[in-house]
Design a protein around this nucleic acid. Structure first.
Length: 112
DNA sequence: CATCGAACCAACC
DNA sequence: GGTTGGTTCGATG
């Protein structure tokens, strides 16, 4: 996805988020590979997300499986994910999601 | 395993 | 031009 403006890329990212099933998460990196921008920028898009309800930005974690950040606090993010059925482990002051819960949207979209 | 620095890229100042 | 993000990766101890 080459020459698109910031606001368009952001909308695309938000649309992709809607495709993540409840009980699954994806990562900043996997999203960045679809959008064609840096994971850092994907994080920025999510941080600017105001529609916390309709746009499920809590379903994005770091590629290291660390739960990552959340504008309403990572404890709340943890709670939301647990409500959706994910198991989250606390490993030495880090919150980790298990690998089988992480999906790559490229597979759903058949982008290969 | 923990810490660190660099790469990342558009917005904002 | 420098700083700033809900990040990542490789190097180092």
């Amino acid at each position: 996805m080459g020459k698109l403006k910031y606001s368009t890329l952001k909308e695309i990212t938000y649309t992709l988020l809607q495709l993540i099933p409840i009980g699954k998460v994806t990562t900043y990196k996997l999203l960045s590979e679809i959008v064609g921008k840096s994971p850092r920028l994907i994080g920025k898009f999510l941080a600017e997300n105001k529609e916390i309800i309709v746009i499920p930005c809590h379903r994005v974690v770091k590629h290291s499986r660390d739960i990552g950040g959340y504008s309403l606090g990572i404890e709340f993010k943890k709670k939301l994910l647990e409500i959706e059925g994910l198991k989250i482990y606390r490993v030495r002051n880090k919150l980790i999601v298990s690998k089988r819960n992480i999906i790559d949207l490229k597979e759903i979209l058949e982008l290969r």
